[in-house]
Design a protein around this nucleic acid. Structure first.
Lengths: 343, 343
DNA sequence: AATAGTCACGGAAACGTTTCCAATCTGCGG
DNA sequence: CCGCAGATTGGAAACGTTTCCGTGACTATT
């Protein structure tokens, strides 16, 4: 029995002293190892009386597991990401793990550094990289080098991670093509995100193919690319749209994502146009925001939340049972959500 | 010089061996303690060559700091919270700290348990509690008991935390009253969040006082409370609004927050009403969503992002310099944001 | 020129766990 | 009654840092 003065936060040692057993016994009781019922009861009582709970720092020092997974994302502001996050948390629920968040908003470079530090310092047991792009390659490689499981939520599959979660953008574009063709549109415009974005390219590809299948050709002059996927891109496109003469304007425009589409819609409404009479609008993603306005936004929904949840579950599985490496890619189907912005 | 086989992740010891110094010296170099230029260079080179970075687990075991702060919130989905988060991350930027996220969405009870565990296990250095309410009292007390600094972003001030950040809801209500009175509205409706919500009560109080100051009385039959602050509450209120006879309807309605207001607006637009001709709509919070629709939502903006940032900075200050307890409350001013939903 | 005072560096003791190994104890069959 | 297997418990060595303390060298002061 130690003669140390018991003060401050109770440690495993205080518990051991109080229950008059060895430290290792307490550890076993806590972690569900073999122990007689008598001892178990005695230790448990000491734990309850002292209000003991183990120090994660000490635990992870020896077990080499932190109980945290890292979530790195471009922008925590986008409603699309909110859905991903909701899914991740849903999957995390029962696991007694926590999520470390790094969103690379404005301060992109710094935040990437933060994630790199997590990897180096082993602050996380695994990593979910959202909207991974070429630029993030170093992060990915660093994680692999440290043997850290990584899950990607991104359209790209160049780097085979434990799991790559994406949705079928080409199909999404095709659905839009069909929908617009069925409505009788012949003059369609496309305003994507950045020209080099894989999402944008795939969606455009699907749209273009789907249209020409139906005898409609996408006028190259009606293809536009934004700086990013933000509202502002949609607004910028709206400006250039409005500058065209009435007769030259496409009768339907397809935006790179919902956020852009909403920015576009807001601006043309503001300028007195009627949606969908004067112009039909289609977005991508199916974020809740699209249902927040009137007219509601027609869009191609992806199971965003489920994607986040599945990604997280896959990561947890891998974290909890190391060794069995498997590297797969899952592609989710998409669904046309017809609201009021098209006719 | 140790004869251990150097394998796996480099430790401080590998560095010490390689640079032929003691590990305490390496530690000093890393942490900026005193060391001669010669030694410093030698150690630094060893660090670079080995790609060493310290293990946070070991560090926090001895320093009793984890470098993480916890952020607990009701719903990660709300745009208001997104702004708070953005502010927190902005403030966190240069500090080499990370944010552990717990959002208590659907799984409220479980998540509160997660936060309690953070506190017990000392997984975080400090805590930001958002939308703290009576129900979270135990969390707050537990943190205080463990000597964990806590910052509250909430209208309530019953529990004095290190810092309580809130905005002036009464003033916000007053601003709305003035705005509507100036526009000539005499029949005003109010649809708040939950009846017991402090935010709602204060906003209603300010509104009601401001109106009667100008000779307008709020008809008690036109005061309504929702289950929560979600879109659905706004929609539910819209239903009951639409059920009233044209002549009985208020000419302007004030909703509990922007999300509700947007839900309301969407529904009445959907039913063919014109905004603001048939009804003027006002929200609270000033979230970006209110600018996403047409007509844009008139609302009372709070400096949400700055509130998050200031809360975080205050917390960091306290975490980094323990001892100087100070417990303050900051109240932020609000600002009327007139858009197109009122006339 | 002697001595006090700095400064740089090494050694070693924490920090609070888990886990391996040895020791003891129990019950059972021969 | 003895030996042995299996279960239970205690002891001690990690895990990778920081930090305190002591020693030796070097500088400055009288």
């Amino acid at each position: 029995m130690s003669s140390r003065i018991e003060t401050g936060k109770p440690t495993i040692r205080s518990v051991a002293d109080r229950a008059d057993v060895a430290i290792s016994t307490v550890s076993r009781v806590v972690n569900g190892g073999g122990a007689s019922a008598l001892i178990r009861r005695r230790v448990q009582r000491a734990i309850d009386e002292l209000g003991y709970s183990p120090s994660v720092a000490a635990q992870s020092l020896v077990t080499r597991r932190t109980g945290c997974i890292g979530l790195a994302v471009n922008s925590s502001q986008s409603p699309w990401f909110s859905q991903i996050l909701a899914g991740v948390e849903e999957a995390l629920g029962p696991s007694r793990k926590s999520v470390l968040l790094a969103s690379m908003m404005l301060t992109g470079e710094y935040q990437a550094g933060a994630v790199a530090a997590w990897i180096q310092e082993r602050r996380v047991d695994g990593l979910i990289l959202v909207r991974y792009s070429k630029r993030d390659e170093p992060l990915f490689l660093a994680a692999e080098r440290m043997g850290l499981p990584v899950v990607l939520i991104a359209p790209d599959v160049t780097a085979p991670a434990e799991l790559t979660v994406r949705c079928n953008n080409v199909e999404a574009g095709g659905l839009v093509a069909r929908h617009l063709a069925e409505l009788g549109h012949r003059r369609v415009g496309f305003a994507g995100g950045p020209r080099e974005s894989v999402d944008t390219r795939q969606r455009l590809e699907g749209l273009s193919a789907g249209l020409s299948e139906r005898g409609i050709e996408l006028d190259p002059r009606q293809i536009w690319f934004g700086q990013g996927y933000a509202r502002e891109s949609g607004i910028a496109y709206a400006k250039s749209f409005l500058e065209q003469k009435r007769g030259d304007r496409p009768s339907a425009v397809v935006l790179g994502n919902d956020t852009m589409a909403l920015g576009f819609m807001r601006t043309v409404l503001q300028h007195g146009l009627h949606v969908p009479r004067d112009v039909s609008i289609v977005g991508f993603d199916g974020t809740p925001d699209g249902d927040q306005c009137w007219p509601g936004l027609t869009t191609v929904a992806q199971p965003t939340r489920r994607m986040g949840a599945d990604a997280c579950r896959a990561l947890l599985r891998r974290v909890d049972s190391p060794g069995e490496e498997q590297r797969t890619a899952v592609e989710y189907g998409v669904e046309m959500l017809v609201r009021e912005s098209t006719a």
